[in-house]
């Protein structure tokens, strides 16, 4: 690990000042400390934001749910309103990492976590995400866990967050505060596809702080759930996953939101699947037909061809679990 200076500001203003001077924010530290030890990350100054008042989870006037960026994964998963209104969020969280890590890690850090691609983590390997222009060892290397959607010739690494998949399905908004004031983006706008600049992973300007994530109000009743498929039953990243959110009244699906994880360079909204669902009546046949659209546009690599079919099956299973069969 490279040496670094450490500061812990007591308020948001001082944090922004330290951030503007090039300091790196540290929240739970579960991504950052790990990557600093591998020397993938080499910040000169760590700005510890854990003392800032950004931990609240609260419901606003429009019934939107605002989750402070520093709320811990375990606390958000256990929050009564999250559990009752958005099971897809609490399930995605409780299927992530371990109880210990969820006690440390924050919601803001979670959507900012970096890929688990082993070539990215290995400073001796070529990786355009770590060092632009150095090449991508995964393209010709062992790429079983890599992405099949949203990839480019420069990068095929997945975004590993489970939570971000659930939040993408719910059209979550990211609230930012920087030297130039506040701004807000949807999570889908915030997380960037690799293209020719895989080192640019998000639209966070220098010194900007994520203050909160906001789930906008959704039509009621809302059913939702998260399914994660992996090599072992727990404490493992997804090979494929599906977040399904359905609004059904009078036996007809009025609104459908479906997103996939483990397969995309960013959390992947399955708009073709959603289009199939809206206006239709739940049935096993519908789930199968809609799920068949899930891997639309997929570009499998040498070792991850299995993900195409696995994704379709994951989506079908989760549509049936959430939507039921009449």
């Amino acid at each position: 690990m490279h040496p670094f200076a450490y500061t812990k500001p007591a308020d948001t203003r001082s944090a922004l000042v330290a951030g503007a001077r090039g300091g790196r924010y540290i929240a739970g530290g579960t991504t950052l400390v790990d990557l600093m030890r591998e020397t993938v990350e080499r910040p000169g100054t760590l700005v510890d934001i854990s003392g800032l008042p950004l931990r609240d989870v609260r419901t606003g006037e429009r019934r939107e749910l605002r989750i402070g960026a520093l709320a811990r994964m375990s606390d958000v998963a256990a929050h009564p309103r999250v559990r009752s209104a958005y099971p897809v969020v609490s399930q995605a969280l409780e299927l992530s990492a371990s109880a210990q890590l969820r006690n440390m890690a924050t919601i803001g850090g979670n959507i900012m976590q970096r890929t688990r691609c082993t070539y990215f983590r290995d400073v001796s390997a070529a990786c355009n995400k770590r060092q632009r222009g150095s090449g991508c060892a995964a393209l010709e290397g062992y790429n079983r866990s890599h992405a099949i959607l949203g990839t480019s010739d420069a990068c095929v690494a997945t975004h590993p967050s489970d939570l971000a998949v659930a939040l993408a399905a719910l059209d979550t908004v990211v609230h930012l505060l920087g030297p130039d004031g506040e701004r807000s983006l949807t999570l889908t706008e915030f997380l960037l596809r690799p293209g020719s600049t895989p080192d640019r992973e998000h639209d966070l300007r220098p010194g900007e702080l994520i203050t909160a994530l906001e789930i906008p109000p959704h039509p009621q009743p809302l059913r939702s759930g998260y399914l994660k498929v992996r090599d072992r039953q727990s404490y493992e990243f997804a090979l494929t996953s599906a977040a399904v959110v359905l609004h059904i009244t009078g036996g007809v699906i009025r609104d459908a939101r479906v997103a996939a994880g483990g397969v995309g360079t960013v959390p992947w909204r399955l708009t073709a699947v959603e289009r199939r669902l809206v206006g239709a009546r739940p049935s096993d046949r519908l789930w199968a037909q809609a799920a068949a659209e899930a891997s639309h546009g997929a570009r499998p690599l040498r070792h991850n061809g299995f993900k195409t079919e696995l994704l379709e099956r994951t989506v079908e299973r989760q549509l049936r679990t959430v939507g039921g069969t009449p």
Partner: peptide, 21 residues
């Protein structure tokens, strides 16, 4: 998980916890 300890009564991984924090 070999490094699990309680910090302020919550279980955490001591290997990813900076002492200075």
């Amino acid at each position: 998980g070999a490094c699990t300890v309680l910090v302020d009564d919550r279980r955490v991984n001591a290997c990813l916890t900076l002492a200075v924090r």
